[in-house]
C-alpha cells in the first residue's frame, strides 16, 4: 500500500507535466490541476492510510 501511494504520487506528476502537450489553456489548467490532485491523493490518501494501519496509538 505504501508503494502504491508513492506510485500514484509520481503518476500525478506525470499527468501534470502532460499538460504541456495540450493546446488550450483551460485544458492545460484542468490537466495540471488533476495531476496535482492525484499526487495529493497518493500521498495524503493512500500512503498515509497505509501508515495509519499500524499506528502506534492503536497498539
Amino acid at each position: 500500500m505504501k508503494l502504491l501511494g508513492l506510485v500514484i504520487a509520481v503518476l500525478g506528476w506525470l499527468l501534470a507535466i502532460m499538460s504541456v502537450k495540450l493546446a488550450s489553456p483551460p485544458a492545460q489548467i484542468i490537466c495540471a490541476l488533476a495531476g496535482f490532485t492525484v499526487a495529493l491523493i497518493g500521498v495524503l490518501g493512500v500512503l498515509n492510510a497505509a501508515h495509519l494501519k499500524d499506528a502506534i496509538w492503536k497498539s
Partner: peptide, 21 residues
C-alpha cells in the same frame, strides 16, 4: 495570462509527486 498558472501547478505537482517521494 492563464499559462503562468499552468506552470505553477506543474511546480506544485512536482513538489508533491517527485520531491515528497
Amino acid at each position: 495570462d492563464p499559462h503562468q498558472f499552468v506552470a505553477q501547478l506543474i511546480g506544485c505537482a512536482t513538489l508533491v509527486g517527485v520531491i515528497f517521494t
